[in-house]
Nucleic acid binder design. Sequence first.
DNA 1: CCGAGTATACGAAGAGATTCGTTAGGACAT
DNA 2: ATGTCCTAACGAATCTCTTCGTATACTCGG
Lengths: 135, 135
Amino acid sequence: MKRKSELRTVRPTNAELNILRALWRLGPSTVRSVHEELSRVDRNLGYTTVLKFLQIMLDKGLVKREDSQRAHVYRPAVSREQTQRQLTRQLIDGAFDGSRSQLVLQALSGADGVRPEELAEIRALLDRLQIAQNN
Amino acid sequence: MKRKSELRTVRPTNAELNILRALWRLGPSTVRSVHEELSRVDRNLGYTTVLKFLQIMLDKGLVKREDSQRAHVYRPAVSREQTQRQLTRQLIDGAFDGSRSQLVLQALSGADGVRPEELAEIRALLDRLQIAQNN
DNA sequence: CCGAGTATACGAAGAGATTCGTTAGGACAT
DNA sequence: ATGTCCTAACGAATCTCTTCGTATACTCGG
């Protein structure tokens, strides 16, 4: 009696996030595909574990399912960007007292490896923001 | 038989992070102080709940305790910055496939409220990074 | 039709996180 | 000394997350 009552999107747990990442990489996939993909990294991950998670995530509304075929096909119901936004906001609120820029500074400082083109991209975004503010 | 075996710092849970934030704000505090501080936001938080968490956190090495007085005084054993770094790294790895700059772009875009001085600060940091790279 | 192989569904165990109730002891005013 | 008021300590209930074992059902080649 709760399946349809998703006003806001649910926060994926760590394990769920792993599954979502596989789905974002692979696109619509069977349980088997997802399991194989994740097995590359975690050798001991069980098939039914993945299946169970996908069922849970279906219930939470994190994935959608096409079950016309015997092997059901799952796909993400939340976008990568949307999820990244959600988790980032959560971190900002939870650990940076709501200060977006503190997070940015944290992420950039001690930066051994931010590539030049990334720096340029960030700089470009800053320019756009600053222009927007001057209006 | 595990108290002293902290090679790396433990990831604080959500509730623990709340307590740490209170301690970072207040400085060394009794259970009562922390409880009062957190009660402002969560009206229903019990005193013994806070006490229990502080005991757990002491065990995990997240806080230190001065128990010469009857009312023990707790203080953070991990710094705010250290914890922010840890959690940020975790988010980058878990949700941004290790790309620091993707997180930065995410945090800045859709930015309704990044104040001008914050933008300037970020820009200054970028300058420093770029100079460092040209050496 | 039957068995081997592959799928989903279900339940439950075990670990971790969260929250308190209850107990017991110290301080101190009466 | 006794009752009141704080305090810490424990243990336990509850919830969530993670992981599988087992049961059951479908499919297809022989």
